[in-house]
Design a protein around this nucleic acid. Structure first.
Lengths: 336, 336
DNA sequence: CTGAAAGCGCTTACAG
DNA sequence: CTGAAAGCGCTTACAG
């Protein structure tokens, strides 16, 4: 109940001594591995409970060549730091990791620098890592494969050997686009993000799928990528409106926020002058008037699932390679 | 179950053997501690460079009773996860930590549960921690004091013994309020956040300071706290407008976003019907029309400074107890 | 300047 | 069922 003798932290030797048994036995009582008498075990557990003994995970790790850490790798791009997406994934990771006694070490990578990632794996500070997003040519993923470190990606990749967890953006975008087309619009513009992100391509494919389904020809002058600042965005909107687009489909809510502001500035009304829909997963568009039709995902759940998969993987269990989480489609006034 | 591959991780013994010297000498060459011949040292450094040997930080940690991790503690409240603030702090932390060979372990706490924090400190997984915000009755801070773990807080507290890094919210708010008053407004409403957060109180104090400076009496029917959902927000706005407030000062951009949406919904125009100002540190209000007058802070810098202070602290150096970072005041159309 | 040895706090064959 | 001992990969008095 009271804190142990002031100062020094208790070690396994202390409890062994106090109980007049060997460290081996104490270790076994705690880990549950190896044979041990029920009564002995009870005594040990009771003692450490009462004296609040907590084994050093560092020492345990050394003995087992493990760190009990998983690495969470997120991009550090300026534009991405404003999106709550990665923060929410991280929350999910943390939530799942603690109960299985893993901790989460964070590091960032940028397209031209993955030294932080290299540090944590080469210093042996993590037992596995989860990559926060996937790129078309994914240097971090290649690196981890080569190093033979267990890892899972939040997102999708072509390689069927890597463990992936993602929402099915292709289907989702196909569904959303279909609904827009079914409403009678044929000129649905697409405002895309970075084409080097796999997610961008998948959404684009879904868009194309829907166009094909509904036999609507694709007009490339309505399709824009790499819209990552307001100048590009404004330019794209001007072109799009020149083509008399009936709807603008935005690939993420950062882009959508930009689009809405520019539309507003230009006095173009939503949904009367043009409809707007988005891939919505943050609060950027909270309470916007009119409410924005969007696809809804759950980043926190991505994090939780990724963590579960990674830990299973690390511990040598069989792991499903590809898991898709559900999404929701929310029709609002912006596409009325 | 795993078979050893030829590419096994190299240990200090391997390099000692290869060079025909002792592990001691290798260790000294790397750490720079202890006497060692310049030539010997050169050989070691050259060898490990060439063979890409990286010492295990885990083992090093065990030997030194250190983990070379710092803990980053952030709240997990639902409302707070949408703000990029903590994510940006974290970026700053990471940026400073890597060069000094520390890694960052993340954990969350909520008002009624700090078990994640207890885990990482009691498992000895961190050498110190930084608390992402301060509360009026700060249980995590109390806990860390009791445990005698080095820690620094991002935010302010009454206890002069704890290392703090913060923006001077009181002065900032005083300055902003003064400017508003100087423009001739006397009815400046205040929409505050959680009164249990120290930052909320400090901003409030700054507001009071300014009112006193300018000899404007404080009207309590213009001051609201704990505005954390749109229902409360709408109610507050109705009351405020009934009092014919000339300006609404919002304590953070989440609140401000809410306020703007409700104002919009009610057809109240900014700045003609009412002025609006905010404490702006995220992208929530990006490109909003009209542009919002606000105080601007730098969360990333907070993280960087906190990291520097903590590492100094951990390594036993003298550390400044209280550091204030600068802020900027941006006057925009919303208070014209 | 360099090395043998003890030690950091655990785990885990191996033996009894 | 239990323990002595070796070992995980480093650091660091201590001695030469």
């Amino acid at each position: 109940m009271e804190t142990k003798e002031s100062g020094q932290k208790m070690t396994i030797s202390d409890v062994a001594e106090a109980l007049n048994i060997s460290k081996t036995t104490v270790s076994r009582a705690i880990s549950g591995k190896g044979r041990i008498g029920a009564e002995t075990r009870r005594r040990v557990l009771e003692y450490i409970e009462e004296h609040n003994y907590k084994p050093s995970v560092i020492a345990k790790g050394l003995a087992q060549s493990k760190s009990y850490n998983i690495g969470w790798v997120m991009p550090s791009d300026y534009s991405v730091v404003d999106l709550p997406f990665f923060q929410k994934c991280l929350m999910g990771l943390l939530e799942m990791a603690a109960p299985v006694d893993y901790d989460v070490l964070v590091c960032t990578v940028s397209p031209d620098d993955m030294s932080q990632l290299e540090r944590i794996v080469e210093n042996h500070k993590v037992d596995g890592v989860v990559l926060g997003r996937t790129l078309v040519n994914d240097a971090p993923a290649e690196y981890l494969k080569e190093k033979k470190i267990p890892f899972v990606v939040v997102g999708s990749m072509d390689d069927d050997n890597v463990v992936q967890v993602d929402h099915d953006h292709r289907s989702a975008c196909r569904e959303l686009t279909s609904i827009l087309l079914a409403k009678g619009m044929t000129k649905v513009a697409l405002m895309g993000g970075n084409k080097n992100h796999v997610v961008t391509l998948n959404r684009y494919r879904g868009y194309l799928d829907a166009m094909e389904d509904m036999e609507v020809p694709v007009d490339n002058s309505l399709v824009y990528f790499d819209i990552d600042n307001s100048v590009l965005c404004e330019h794209a909107i001007e072109e799009i409106m020149k083509q008399k687009a009936e709807c603008i489909l935005c690939m993420d809510d950062g882009i959508c926020q930009n689009v809405l502001n520019i539309l507003d500035k230009k006095g173009i009304k939503v949904p009367t002058d043009v409809r707007v829909a988005s891939f919505y997963n943050s609060s950027l568009l909270n309470n916007y008037q009119p409410a924005i039709t969007s696809l809804q995902f759950d980043p926190r759940e991505l994090g939780m699932v990724a963590c579960k998969l990674l830990v299973d993987f690390i511990e040598g269990n069989e792991v499903k390679k590809k898991t898709h989480l559900g999404y929701e489609l929310r029709l609002k006034e912006s596409t009325k």
